[in-house]
């Protein structure tokens, strides 16, 4: 039996703005198993970053948690006070941000920045923490660590800075690591190195990772399980193979279809733009952009239909009475492979 590290239940978050209440997260539930990587994919504004920020208690002031629960070791994180958050953040749950250029303190030596969480959370002596920081720098692949531990962030390249950020996030060996587009700002070769590094360290420390990205290529390489978010809701979740080879929701089809593979001749784009969450749609939020949409999609929100033990999707197409639709060619090709993989 896999152990759940984190369990998010029926999370609802509104943002109060001058224009009205933006319903950014609308009834999101998911869990994170021990030692796994869960990727949350979605476009900007889908609520993936807001979800992770809630898990680490870093929501903006105008955000209101309307409902839900986040269970972490029997404790509801949503009821945690700021004082207690400080014991959790950077210790039991830590986060890597997208932009390594702005997530380090430019006036602090990087050795200090890496050692700080150890001193604050684990009560380690300064000298000991410094030694650990040096080890950590070597572990994340910063060459010449003895010299560079005394340098400042501006003396490092983007890729090296992201390594430092990872070192800070992992020095307390947290149970949960939240990575919000950690490689989006980096070049492909550097991205590949950072992703390999994260996988290595995960094996060593046993951290569970929530990985946020819009790059399906990165998801395919990193994730054990995937949740697809759209307009503040999860539309489909399953194992990485379920999502890439047997996707069920038309939005997931659209996402996969709009990524060029090395063979693709044509790109099928998703028409239109995501809905305005000031006034979210009543039914399936993807319905207005969905060419497979049925009447019911506009009227009633589809429940999660079970595809397999690991795989669920919220689309009326899975209802027993729904007409059979033919998915796009690329999806059919993938589903055929899924069937072949099953047979083996």
């Amino acid at each position: 039996m896999t152990e759940k590290v984190l369990d998010v239940k029926n999370l609802k978050i509104d943002f109060h703005t001058y224009a009205g209440d933006v319903k950014a997260i609308r009834n999101v539930s998911f869990h994170l198993n021990k030692g796994e990587t869960l990727a949350i994919v979605g476009e900007s504004g889908s609520g993936k970053s807001v979800t992770t920020r809630t898990i680490i208690g870093l929501l903006a002031k105008n955000a209101e948690i309307v409902g839900g629960e986040i269970d972490f070791h029997g404790k509801n994180l949503l009821a945690t006070k700021e004082k207690d958050w400080r014991k959790i953040r950077g210790n039991e749950i830590s986060m890597i941000f997208q932009d390594p250029m702005t997530s380090l303190d430019p006036t602090m030596k990087i050795g200090q920045q890496i050692a700080e969480p150890l001193i604050k959370h684990k009560g380690v002596s300064k000298k000991e923490a410094w030694k650990k920081a040096l080890e950590m720098m070597k572990a994340v692949g910063i060459p010449d660590a003895e010299k560079r531990i005394n340098q400042y962030p501006h003396q490092f390249s983007g890729g090296m800075r992201q390594r430092i950020v990872i070192a800070i996030a992992l020095i307390c060996e947290p149970e949960v690591l939240l990575a919000d587009e950690p490689t989006t700002a980096l070049d492909v070769t550097v991205q590949a190195e950072i992703l390999d590094l994260m996988k290595d360290l995960q094996k060593k420390i046993g951290t569970s990772i929530i990985f946020i990205t819009h790059d399906l290529g990165v998801v395919a390489g990193m994730a054990d399980r995937v949740a697809v978010m759209y307009a503040g809701e999860i539309l489909e979740y399953g194992s990485v193979d379920d999502i890439f080879y047997n996707p069920q929701h038309p939005y997931t089809w659209g996402l996969i279809n709009s990524m060029p593979t090395l063979e693709s001749e044509e790109l099928e784009s998703i028409p239109g733009t995501p809905p305005n969450l000031l006034d979210p749609p009543k039914g399936d939020p993807f319905a207005p952009r969905n060419k497979y949409a049925m009447k019911i999609d506009a009227e009633r929100k589809p429940p999660f239909f079970k595809v397999s033990e690991t795989h669920y999707a919220a689309t009326w197409l899975l209802h027993p009475n729904a007409p059979k639709v033919v998915p796009p060619a690329e999806i059919r090709r993938r589903q055929k492979r899924f069937a072949e993989m099953k047979e083996k």
């Binding site: 070769t189 991205q191 290529g217 395919a220 390489g221 080879y245 593979t261």
Partner: peptide, 23 residues
């Protein structure tokens, strides 16, 4: 070659087999 080998492909099987070439 190294640049192409670093491009992530949206296909888990391909990703599992991916061999990166260092330049």
């Amino acid at each position: 070659k190294s640049l192409i080998s670093a491009v992530p492909i949206p296909d888990p099987e391909v990703e599992r087999k991916r061999q990166r070439i260092q330049y």
